[in-house]
Amino acid sequence: MPTDWTPAALSDDIPAASAAPGQLGPHDLAIWRSASGRIAAWADRCPHRGMRLSHGYVRGERLSCIYHGWGYGEGGQCVRIPAHPELTPPEAIKVPVFRAVEASGVIWVAVEAPEAPPPEFPGFEAFRSLQVKAAPEALAGALGGSGLVVEAALGGATVVALIQPLRDGAVGLHLLAPEALGAAELDALSVAAEALRRRVEEGVTA
């Protein structure tokens, strides 16, 4: 069970009024952003019929399930059941909520709020996320470091690589690039990141 912040997605990848799937250890997450920009990470399961909420839709400050339109607001509380518009949903209908905060363009999640805020990386900005089929140590090693936060040279730039352990033998690689990198340099970084992924994945299967 992670007791610290885990990087789960990049802020730019979850625009206002959208939802996407994510992971935190054994938990499936629905990471979503309200119309006003608030980020949240909830259990990816509607309590009604088990549908993944990450397939749902956002209107205003609510996330609704795509199956029957049940709407959930603040704290995961069900606030609307379209089949019975006059009904006030019972308080028991609630989606489990995780902690979610944003720092340096990264969405960090946790089961319980860790004592310290997530790390900041001055001079860097979120660039791109990739999924790699490899163990966290193998990816960190290929980047020339160890642990889940690695400063590495990649594609001619110095980057911060945030490694997120995922289930089924995969990891999330969230890359932060130096601010004010030009388009050509960012392209080179992207190409290098994909080459790194291929190299690490081939190392796994070899």
Partner: peptide
């Protein structure tokens, strides 16, 4: 099908505590 392949758990829960129905 887009719904049916994304329900958790995949098996239909017969334990009444697992999913919360309404009058509909």
């Amino acid at each position: 099908r887009s719904v049916l392949e994304n329900q958790l758990p995949a098996l239909l829960p017969l334990d009444p505590g697992m999913e919360i129905p309404t009058r509909a």
